[in-house]
Computed example of a mutant assay.
Amino acid sequence: MSGPDHRFFSHLADIWRTAAAVPLAPVLLVQARRTARGTPRLAPATGAEHGVAGSGAPAFRLLVIGDSTAVGVGASAHAEALPGFLAAALRERLGRSVAWSVAGRSGATARRVVTDLVPALNGTAPDLVVVTVGINDLIRRRPLRAWADDLAALITGVRGAYRDATVLLAGMPPVHRFPALPQPLRLVVGARARAMDRIMREAARAHGAVHAPMDEAMARDRRLFASDGFHPSPAGYRAWADDLARAAAPHVPAGALAQGRPS
Protein backbone atom coordinates (compact mmCIF):
# COMPACT_ATOMS: atom_id res chain seq x y z
CA MET A 1 0.00 0.00 0.00
CA SER A 2 1.52 3.17 -1.05
CA GLY A 3 0.86 6.25 1.12
CA PRO A 4 1.35 9.99 1.20
CA ASP A 5 4.01 11.70 3.21
CA HIS A 6 3.26 13.26 6.60
CA ARG A 7 2.39 16.61 4.98
CA PHE A 8 -0.43 15.12 2.93
CA PHE A 9 -3.34 16.56 4.84
CA SER A 10 -1.91 20.05 4.96
CA HIS A 11 -1.67 19.96 1.15
CA LEU A 12 -5.09 18.47 0.61
CA ALA A 13 -7.12 21.59 1.39
CA ASP A 14 -5.00 23.66 -0.98
CA ILE A 15 -5.45 21.13 -3.75
CA TRP A 16 -9.22 21.13 -3.62
CA ARG A 17 -9.46 24.88 -3.10
CA THR A 18 -8.34 25.17 -6.75
CA ALA A 19 -10.73 22.48 -7.99
CA ALA A 20 -13.40 24.96 -9.04
CA ALA A 21 -14.46 22.73 -11.92
CA VAL A 22 -15.54 20.05 -9.48
CA PRO A 23 -19.21 20.60 -8.48
CA LEU A 24 -18.49 19.26 -5.00
CA ALA A 25 -15.48 21.51 -4.49
CA PRO A 26 -16.92 23.37 -1.44
CA VAL A 27 -17.76 20.10 0.31
CA LEU A 28 -14.37 18.62 -0.58
CA LEU A 29 -12.60 21.68 0.78
CA VAL A 30 -14.42 21.48 4.13
CA GLN A 31 -13.72 17.76 4.41
CA ALA A 32 -10.06 18.24 3.55
CA ARG A 33 -9.64 20.91 6.23
CA ARG A 34 -11.33 18.77 8.87
CA THR A 35 -9.18 15.80 7.94
CA ALA A 36 -6.05 17.91 8.12
CA ARG A 37 -6.90 19.06 11.65
CA GLY A 38 -7.86 15.63 12.97
CA THR A 39 -5.20 13.33 11.56
CA PRO A 40 -1.99 12.48 13.45
CA ARG A 41 1.38 13.05 11.79
CA LEU A 42 3.55 9.95 11.83
CA ALA A 43 7.33 9.77 11.58
CA PRO A 44 9.36 7.48 9.30
CA ALA A 45 10.67 4.20 10.66
CA THR A 46 13.95 4.26 12.53
CA GLY A 47 16.82 1.81 12.82
CA ALA A 48 19.19 0.36 10.24
CA GLU A 49 18.39 1.04 6.59
CA HIS A 50 19.77 -2.31 5.53
CA GLY A 51 19.69 -5.87 6.78
CA VAL A 52 19.61 -9.54 5.81
CA ALA A 53 16.77 -12.05 6.02
CA GLY A 54 18.15 -15.55 6.41
CA SER A 55 21.72 -16.79 6.22
CA GLY A 56 24.13 -17.93 3.57
CA ALA A 57 25.90 -16.22 0.70
CA PRO A 58 25.61 -14.81 -1.82
CA ALA A 59 22.38 -13.13 -0.82
CA PHE A 60 19.69 -11.98 -3.21
CA ARG A 61 19.80 -8.16 -3.13
CA LEU A 62 16.64 -6.11 -2.66
CA LEU A 63 16.35 -2.32 -2.87
CA VAL A 64 13.14 -0.54 -1.84
CA ILE A 65 13.06 3.04 -3.08
CA GLY A 66 10.39 5.72 -3.09
CA ASP A 67 8.09 7.72 -0.86
CA SER A 68 6.91 7.56 2.75
CA THR A 69 5.98 3.89 2.51
CA ALA A 70 9.52 3.08 1.41
CA VAL A 71 10.81 4.75 4.58
CA GLY A 72 8.25 2.98 6.74
CA VAL A 73 5.89 5.70 7.97
CA GLY A 74 3.46 3.83 10.20
CA ALA A 75 6.03 1.38 11.56
CA SER A 76 8.67 1.80 14.25
CA ALA A 77 11.61 0.22 12.38
CA HIS A 78 12.47 -0.71 8.79
CA ALA A 79 12.67 -4.37 9.77
CA GLU A 80 8.95 -4.12 10.66
CA ALA A 81 8.05 -2.16 7.54
CA LEU A 82 8.11 -2.91 3.83
CA PRO A 83 11.84 -3.67 3.32
CA GLY A 84 12.20 -6.13 6.20
CA PHE A 85 8.92 -7.94 5.57
CA LEU A 86 9.50 -8.09 1.82
CA ALA A 87 12.96 -9.56 2.33
CA ALA A 88 11.49 -12.25 4.57
CA ALA A 89 8.74 -13.05 2.05
CA LEU A 90 11.25 -13.26 -0.80
CA ARG A 91 13.49 -15.52 1.27
CA GLU A 92 10.63 -17.99 1.59
CA ARG A 93 9.85 -17.89 -2.13
CA LEU A 94 13.40 -17.87 -3.48
CA GLY A 95 14.92 -20.27 -0.98
CA ARG A 96 17.96 -18.09 -0.25
CA SER A 97 18.95 -15.22 1.99
CA VAL A 98 17.88 -11.72 0.99
CA ALA A 99 19.92 -8.61 1.73
CA TRP A 100 17.70 -5.55 1.81
CA SER A 101 18.30 -1.81 1.75
CA VAL A 102 16.04 1.20 1.58
CA ALA A 103 16.30 4.66 0.05
CA GLY A 104 13.31 6.95 0.34
CA ARG A 105 11.97 10.33 1.26
CA SER A 106 8.61 11.37 2.64
CA GLY A 107 6.88 13.48 0.04
CA ALA A 108 8.85 12.08 -2.90
CA THR A 109 7.18 12.20 -6.30
CA ALA A 110 8.11 9.98 -9.23
CA ARG A 111 10.20 12.77 -10.67
CA ARG A 112 11.98 13.36 -7.36
CA VAL A 113 12.86 9.68 -7.04
CA VAL A 114 14.54 9.52 -10.43
CA THR A 115 16.33 12.88 -10.14
CA ASP A 116 17.41 12.80 -6.48
CA LEU A 117 17.33 9.28 -5.07
CA VAL A 118 18.48 7.06 -7.92
CA PRO A 119 21.70 8.99 -8.71
CA ALA A 120 22.67 8.98 -5.03
CA LEU A 121 22.85 5.18 -5.02
CA ASN A 122 25.65 4.69 -7.52
CA GLY A 123 27.69 1.63 -6.63
CA THR A 124 24.79 -0.53 -5.49
CA ALA A 125 23.86 -3.62 -7.51
CA PRO A 126 20.41 -4.91 -6.53
CA ASP A 127 18.72 -7.92 -8.10
CA LEU A 128 15.25 -6.46 -7.47
CA VAL A 129 14.22 -2.80 -7.18
CA VAL A 130 10.77 -2.15 -5.71
CA VAL A 131 9.51 1.39 -6.32
CA THR A 132 6.74 3.00 -4.27
CA VAL A 133 5.47 6.26 -5.78
CA GLY A 134 2.18 7.88 -6.72
CA ILE A 135 0.39 9.32 -3.72
CA ASN A 136 2.40 12.53 -3.73
CA ASP A 137 1.79 12.95 -7.46
CA LEU A 138 -1.90 12.39 -6.72
CA ILE A 139 -2.13 15.06 -4.06
CA ARG A 140 -0.28 17.57 -6.24
CA ARG A 141 -2.76 16.83 -9.06
CA ARG A 142 0.01 15.94 -11.47
CA PRO A 143 -1.58 15.96 -14.95
CA LEU A 144 -2.06 12.40 -16.15
CA ARG A 145 -0.02 12.90 -19.29
CA ALA A 146 2.86 14.28 -17.22
CA TRP A 147 2.44 11.36 -14.78
CA ALA A 148 2.87 8.93 -17.69
CA ASP A 149 6.01 10.78 -18.80
CA ASP A 150 7.38 10.76 -15.25
CA LEU A 151 6.86 7.02 -14.95
CA ALA A 152 8.59 6.38 -18.26
CA ALA A 153 11.56 8.44 -17.08
CA LEU A 154 11.54 6.71 -13.70
CA ILE A 155 11.58 3.19 -15.12
CA THR A 156 14.20 4.12 -17.69
CA GLY A 157 16.34 5.76 -15.02
CA VAL A 158 16.14 2.84 -12.62
CA ARG A 159 16.84 0.29 -15.34
CA GLY A 160 19.76 2.38 -16.55
CA ALA A 161 21.24 2.58 -13.07
CA TYR A 162 20.63 -1.09 -12.21
CA ARG A 163 20.89 -2.90 -15.55
CA ASP A 164 20.66 -6.41 -14.15
CA ALA A 165 17.78 -5.75 -11.77
CA THR A 166 14.11 -6.57 -12.09
CA VAL A 167 12.11 -3.35 -11.57
CA LEU A 168 8.76 -3.68 -9.82
CA LEU A 169 6.32 -0.77 -9.49
CA ALA A 170 4.05 -1.08 -6.47
CA GLY A 171 0.57 -0.17 -7.67
CA MET A 172 -1.52 2.70 -6.39
CA PRO A 173 -3.46 1.88 -3.24
CA PRO A 174 -7.28 1.73 -3.15
CA VAL A 175 -7.61 5.31 -1.92
CA HIS A 176 -11.39 5.09 -2.32
CA ARG A 177 -11.34 2.83 0.76
CA PHE A 178 -8.95 4.78 2.99
CA PRO A 179 -10.55 5.24 6.43
CA ALA A 180 -8.89 8.64 6.89
CA LEU A 181 -10.94 10.17 4.08
CA PRO A 182 -14.68 10.84 4.37
CA GLN A 183 -17.08 10.60 1.46
CA PRO A 184 -17.32 12.16 -1.09
CA LEU A 185 -13.67 13.23 -0.81
CA ARG A 186 -12.61 9.57 -0.70
CA LEU A 187 -14.55 8.79 -3.87
CA VAL A 188 -13.17 11.71 -5.86
CA VAL A 189 -9.53 11.21 -4.87
CA GLY A 190 -9.87 7.45 -5.24
CA ALA A 191 -11.14 7.72 -8.81
CA ARG A 192 -8.05 9.66 -9.80
CA ALA A 193 -5.82 7.13 -8.04
CA ARG A 194 -7.38 4.34 -10.11
CA ALA A 195 -6.72 6.28 -13.31
CA MET A 196 -3.11 6.76 -12.25
CA ASP A 197 -2.76 3.05 -11.54
CA ARG A 198 -3.95 2.17 -15.05
CA ILE A 199 -1.28 4.48 -16.45
CA MET A 200 1.30 2.87 -14.16
CA ARG A 201 0.38 -0.58 -15.47
CA GLU A 202 0.72 0.60 -19.09
CA ALA A 203 4.05 2.30 -18.39
CA ALA A 204 5.45 -0.82 -16.76
CA ARG A 205 4.42 -2.96 -19.74
CA ALA A 206 5.89 -0.49 -22.24
CA HIS A 207 9.22 0.00 -20.50
CA GLY A 208 10.16 -3.42 -19.20
CA ALA A 209 9.04 -3.23 -15.58
CA VAL A 210 6.58 -5.25 -13.50
CA HIS A 211 3.39 -3.67 -12.16
CA ALA A 212 2.09 -5.16 -8.91
CA PRO A 213 -1.50 -4.01 -8.23
CA MET A 214 -2.53 -3.76 -4.62
CA ASP A 215 -5.13 -6.20 -3.35
CA GLU A 216 -8.16 -4.01 -2.63
CA ALA A 217 -9.27 -6.43 0.07
CA MET A 218 -6.40 -5.16 2.23
CA ALA A 219 -8.09 -1.78 2.55
CA ARG A 220 -11.17 -3.36 4.12
CA ASP A 221 -9.25 -4.35 7.26
CA ARG A 222 -8.72 -1.34 9.54
CA ARG A 223 -6.01 -3.24 11.41
CA LEU A 224 -3.78 -2.96 8.36
CA PHE A 225 -3.73 0.85 8.67
CA ALA A 226 -1.61 2.94 11.01
CA SER A 227 -3.25 5.42 13.36
CA ASP A 228 -3.43 8.07 10.62
CA GLY A 229 -5.79 5.91 8.57
CA PHE A 230 -3.53 6.30 5.54
CA HIS A 231 -0.21 4.55 5.95
CA PRO A 232 0.11 0.82 6.58
CA SER A 233 0.54 -0.53 10.06
CA PRO A 234 3.24 -3.20 10.57
CA ALA A 235 0.54 -5.79 9.81
CA GLY A 236 -0.33 -3.85 6.66
CA TYR A 237 3.29 -3.75 5.55
CA ARG A 238 3.54 -7.51 6.08
CA ALA A 239 0.42 -8.20 3.99
CA TRP A 240 1.60 -5.84 1.27
CA ALA A 241 5.05 -7.42 1.26
CA ASP A 242 3.55 -10.86 0.74
CA ASP A 243 1.65 -9.59 -2.32
CA LEU A 244 4.74 -7.89 -3.75
CA ALA A 245 6.88 -11.00 -3.25
CA ARG A 246 4.23 -13.07 -5.03
CA ALA A 247 4.25 -10.63 -7.95
CA ALA A 248 8.05 -10.42 -8.13
CA ALA A 249 8.97 -14.10 -7.85
CA PRO A 250 7.94 -15.19 -11.39
CA HIS A 251 10.18 -12.48 -12.83
CA VAL A 252 13.30 -13.38 -10.88
CA PRO A 253 15.92 -15.04 -13.15
CA ALA A 254 16.26 -18.78 -12.63
CA GLY A 255 19.84 -18.33 -11.48
CA ALA A 256 18.63 -16.35 -8.48
CA LEU A 257 16.76 -19.34 -7.05
CA ALA A 258 18.23 -21.78 -4.58
CA GLN A 259 18.79 -25.19 -6.12
CA GLY A 260 15.68 -27.32 -5.96
CA ARG A 261 13.39 -24.51 -4.82
CA PRO A 262 10.50 -23.33 -7.02
CA SER A 263 9.64 -19.64 -7.39
Score class of each variant (00 low, 15 high):
residue 140 R to N: 09
residue 148 A to H: 11
residue 113 V to H: 06
residue 159 R to F: 09
residue 115 T to G: 04
residue 153 A to W: 06
residue 124 T to D: 10
residue 160 G to I: 11
residue 130 V to E: 05
residue 127 D to I: 05
residue 145 R to Q: 09
residue 156 T to P: 05
residue 165 A to P: 05
residue 106 S to I: 07
residue 121 L to Q: 15
residue 98 V to L: 14
residue 165 A to N: 03
residue 128 L to S: 12
residue 155 I to W: 03
residue 150 D to T: 08
residue 159 R to N: 13
residue 151 L to Y: 00
residue 131 V to M: 08
residue 168 L to H: 05
residue 170 A to E: 04
residue 104 G to T: 03
residue 152 A to S: 10
residue 154 L to N: 02
residue 101 S to Y: 03
residue 165 A to F: 10
residue 164 D to M: 02
residue 110 A to F: 03
residue 106 S to M: 13
residue 137 D to Y: 13
residue 117 L to M: 00
residue 154 L to D: 09
residue 161 A to P: 04
residue 144 L to V: 03
residue 122 N to C: 04
residue 124 T to K: 10
residue 180 A to T: 08
residue 150 D to S: 11
residue 112 R to V: 08
residue 179 P to V: 12
residue 164 D to R: 15
residue 118 V to L: 12
residue 115 T to I: 03
residue 131 V to S: 09
residue 108 A to F: 01
residue 143 P to I: 06
residue 115 T to Y: 03
residue 177 R to P: 06
residue 169 L to S: 07
residue 159 R to K: 14
residue 122 N to E: 14
residue 170 A to L: 11
residue 171 G to R: 00
residue 109 T to M: 07
residue 132 T to W: 02
residue 171 G to I: 09
residue 112 R to C: 04
residue 135 I to R: 01
residue 136 N to E: 13
residue 120 A to D: 15
residue 160 G to N: 11
residue 109 T to G: 08
residue 134 G to N: 01
residue 99 A to D: 12
residue 145 R to V: 14
residue 135 I to H: 13
residue 143 P to H: 06
residue 178 F to P: 00
residue 171 G to A: 11
residue 104 G to P: 03
residue 133 V to F: 01
residue 140 R to W: 04
residue 119 P to C: 04
residue 179 P to G: 01
residue 146 A to F: 00
residue 116 D to E: 15
residue 116 D to H: 11
residue 172 M to Y: 09
residue 168 L to M: 14
residue 146 A to D: 12
residue 119 P to M: 00
residue 171 G to Q: 14
residue 161 A to H: 10
residue 132 T to I: 02
residue 180 A to L: 04
residue 173 P to Q: 13
residue 126 P to Y: 13
residue 129 V to K: 05
residue 168 L to Y: 10
residue 148 A to L: 08
residue 146 A to S: 13
residue 138 L to A: 11
residue 153 A to T: 07
residue 111 R to M: 09
residue 159 R to P: 09
residue 127 D to H: 15
residue 136 N to D: 15
residue 179 P to A: 11
residue 155 I to K: 04
residue 105 R to M: 09
residue 126 P to A: 12
residue 135 I to E: 06
residue 123 G to F: 05
residue 167 V to M: 09
residue 124 T to Y: 02
residue 120 A to I: 10
residue 101 S to T: 12
residue 107 G to S: 08
residue 110 A to E: 07
residue 126 P to M: 11
residue 117 L to S: 02
residue 153 A to N: 13
residue 177 R to Q: 14
residue 99 A to T: 06
residue 178 F to A: 15
residue 101 S to E: 14
residue 164 D to N: 12
residue 148 A to T: 08
residue 129 V to D: 07
residue 101 S to G: 13
residue 97 S to Q: 08
